[in-house]
Simulated scan of single mutants.
Amino acid sequence: MRHFLALDLKDDPALIAEYEAYHRSIWPEVREHLNAHGITAMEIYRLGTRMVMLMETDDARYDADAMALATRSNPKIREWEELMWKFQAPTPWTPEGEKWVAMTRIFAL
């Protein structure tokens, strides 16, 4: 299944460059965490400060709630998430306490 999510970056060119550098070589623990939870592919696109993530999952293994629980219980993944929040900002439509928010498909050809 494909999932599309949105998140913003802080409007600071130096922070954006640093964020992109981290994503050119993510930590091995992050890659393992994603793979272990059924994420088979992931891409992030940016326009200005707005980002869109395309995440493909193996529905037999992917469970968003289980992955969130595993994220909270893994110190290295929490460290990554806290570091990324240095660069990230919620969109105007992001509920309090959340980061990446699912987008609604409005057209398909």
Rank of each mutant, 00 (worst) to 15 (best):
V30G: 04
D65P: 00
S25C: 12
H23P: 09
R105L: 08
T91E: 12
V52N: 09
A68V: 00
T94P: 06
P95R: 03
M1A: 10
Q88Y: 04
M103T: 05
P28S: 14
D11I: 06
T57N: 01
A64E: 10
N35Q: 14
V52L: 15
M67K: 09
P28E: 14
A102W: 10
E29H: 06
D11W: 08
L83P: 02
E81C: 03
P75C: 01
I39K: 00
W80C: 01
E98L: 06
L69C: 07
T71L: 04
H23M: 14
P95Y: 00
Y45A: 08
I44M: 14
E79V: 00
L7W: 02
I39V: 15
E43F: 04
H37D: 03
V30E: 12
T57W: 00
K76W: 11
M103Y: 01
T104M: 15
R105T: 12
M1L: 04
I44Y: 07
V101R: 02
S73E: 12
R78E: 14
E81P: 01
F4S: 06
D65S: 10
D65I: 03
G48R: 11
L83V: 05
E32N: 10
W93G: 09
L5V: 14
V52A: 12
V101D: 01
I77W: 03
A17H: 03
D8L: 05
R31D: 15
A89M: 09
I39Y: 01
I44C: 12
Y22L: 07
F107S: 09
E18D: 11
A60I: 05
L15S: 07
W85T: 02
V30A: 14
Y45T: 09
D65F: 10
T57C: 04
E98K: 14
R24L: 15
G97K: 10
I26M: 08
H33N: 14
V30C: 11
K99T: 07
H37G: 08
A36P: 07
R24C: 13
R78M: 15
W93S: 15
E98A: 06
G97D: 11
A36E: 09
V101L: 08
L34A: 11
L109I: 10
E43R: 08
